[in-house]
Each structure stands twice: as C-alpha cells, then as structure tokens.
C-alpha cells in the first residue's frame, strides 16, 4: 500500500494486519453479543409495548393516545437499539484511536477545541441556533497542524405549532494551521448556479470575485478574496486540482477558506466522517479503507500547500 506518493502509508499494511485485524475479529464477537442482547430485549418488549398500546387505546382519550403511543414506540425502539449503538461507539473508539495513532494523530470522541467561532468568522457556516460536535482528530503532519471535527448545526424556524428544527449543516470540518501567515482572506464557495452565486456574492463584503483560469474548477467553485494576487498565490494550479480531488471525496457542497495562518474546509454532506457502521466485519473494513483514503487526501493537501510554499510552481 505504501509508495513514494503516499509515504504516510509506509508500514501500514503490516500495522493493519498486526494491530487492527485482531481488533476487528474481537469486535465481531462483541457485535454478535450486542445483536443478541438487542433481540432479547425486542422479544419481550415488543409484545409488552403492543399490550400497553392496546390498553391505552381502550382506556385513554384521543389526544393523549397519540402521545402515549409515540412515547411507547420511541422509548422501546431506543431501549432495543441501545446495545447496538453502544457497540458502534465501541467500534469507533477501539478502531479509530490506534488508526489515528499510526498516522501521528489523536482521536477524541468529545472535541477538545471548538472550531465553530473561527469558521463562522470566515463565513463558511450557515446561521444556526443549535450546534453539536463530536469525534475530533487532531495532530500535525509535515509541520502543519491539522484538526477534523464532525459538526451538526440546526436552525429553528416557524412559530407556535409550526415551530420546527431544520438541520442546516451536517458533516466534517477541517482546520489546518500553517507556519506562514497570509494578509487577506480567500473564500472558496461551492458553485451555486447563476442565481445562487449572485446572492452568495452579496454577503461577501469587501471580498471581490476572483476569476480563475481553470474552467473545471470554476464550474465547481466560486472564489472571493480580499486580495486578488494573494488568492492566486494560494490557489496554484496544483492546489486547485487537490481541491477538486477533495470535492470528489467530500461531495459537491464542500467549501474552503484561507484566513490568517489557517486553511479551513467544510463539507455539508450529511455524513459523520468517523462513524464506523460496525454491523459486519466487511463493512468495517470498507469504512476503514475510506477513512485511510481520506487521511491520504488531507495529507496530500498539506503536501501540496507545503510544496507550493517552497516552489510556487
């Protein structure tokens, strides 16, 4: 798996066989136990819940009936699922921690640092009034600090009975800190068609539209910057290609920004980057392969930015 183009994978195959495969094997028996525990709970809870619903149906008034059934079904479902959810958390903690360790990164289920304020400052996050964050990977590669966090942002809309909460952002956010500082701000927004780009440009303040020569890149992104030259200094042809590759992996709604000594990427793709859907050994392996591939893309981004800062080719 290791080659000159991906030096971070040197020794990875051996590490995976030695450290990760036995863990997947051990987790497989834990998975069976979790599944059996969930089935055992379901075997007596479902009849009990049905009985309770029947009693409620007979003896309670209409308005309260729906509420009671909702509570009974929701509560039962959560209780049945609990061993499986707990197992999935264990899978994540058990596998991602050593995997990150191999790449010199640290994994925390509860984030140590909140990336939201700085991401809001550069305008990469939509307005929201509820936020939750989990699964943070942090560390350094090739002299660049790197941090990845899963975010979920929700916005309340409507009032009274129509009041509801809408998820406005769900996906991973990445923060990179460079030893070098830039004077301006460069924002790379997802292309939002003619009308979307027009309205997107209105809220940009002193940032001007930066038109780049790469037509494929221009189809995918709209770039705004406070300094036209600096935007082009940062967005070299090589780096634009890296962003296109990253978009392939993170989805069409990926956006990025340079500000001060930091580079940010956010991807509103509805995915939890670190969620290992641990319900079969094969699924876990597929998920881990994707995780390793994504780490590789991020390391390549750092490599390109570092190389660019040395050669500017």
């Amino acid at each position: 798996m290791a080659n000159e183009a991906a030096p971070w994978l040197t020794g990875f195959d051996a590490f995976r066989a030695r450290e990760i495969e036995p863990l997947i094997g051990a987790l497989e028996s834990a998975r069976q136990e979790a599944r059996n525990a969930a089935l055992k709970r379901a075997s007596w809870l479902i009849p009990l819940a049905l009985l309770a619903c029947g009693l409620v149906w007979l003896y309670l008034p209409g308005d309260f009936l729906i509420f009671a059934i909702f509570i009974a079904v929701g509560g039962s479902w959560a209780w049945i699922q609990y061993p499986i959810i707990q197992h999935q958390k264990d899978v994540k903690q058990t596998l991602i921690t050593p995997l990150c360790g191999f790449f010199g990164l640290e994994y925390c289920m509860v984030p140590k640092r909140d990336p939201i304020p700085e991401l809001r400052r550069v305008g990469l996050l939509p307005s929201h009034n509820r936020e939750s964050r989990e699964d943070q990977v942090s560390g350094a590669y090739d002299g660049v600090r790197l941090e990845m966090t899963d975010l979920r942002l929700r916005q309340e809309s409507g009032s009274g009975k129509d009041k509801r909460e809408v998820t406005v952002f769900e996906g991973p956010v990445f923060c990179f800190s460079f030893p070098k500082r830039f004077s301006g701000t460069t924002i790379i927004k997802a292309d939002g068609s003619l009308i979307g780009n027009f309205f997107g440009g209105i809220g940009m303040g002193d940032r001007e539209r930066v038109t780049l020569e790469d037509t494929e890149f221009e189809k995918c992104f709209e770039v705004y910057g406070t300094d036209q030259v600096e935007a082009r200094y940062l967005l070299t042809p090589g780096f634009m290609q890296q962003l296109m590759d990253l978009r392939e992996s993170l989805g069409n709604r990926m956006q990025a920004a340079f500000n001060g000594d930091s580079f940010y990427i956010v991807a509103n793709n509805g995915q939890n980057k670190f969620e290992v859907q641990g319900y079969s050994g094969q699924a876990v392996n597929v998920q881990l392969d994707k995780f390793v591939a994504d780490i590789g893309i991020l390391f390549r981004v750092i490599g390109t930015l570092n190389l660019d800062s040395k050669t500017r080719l």
Partner: peptide
C-alpha cells in the same frame, strides 16, 4: 526569489485574466 517568483506568478495570472 522563490517566494517573490510565486507572487509574480500570481500577479501575472491576475494581470492576464
């Protein structure tokens, strides 16, 4: 010079556009 050439390349792209 590498640094300056990087800025010149960026300014050149801006000028050409």
């Amino acid at each position: 010079l590498n640094e300056v050439e990087g800025h010149i390349a960026a300014a050149r792209r801006f000028y050409n556009s």
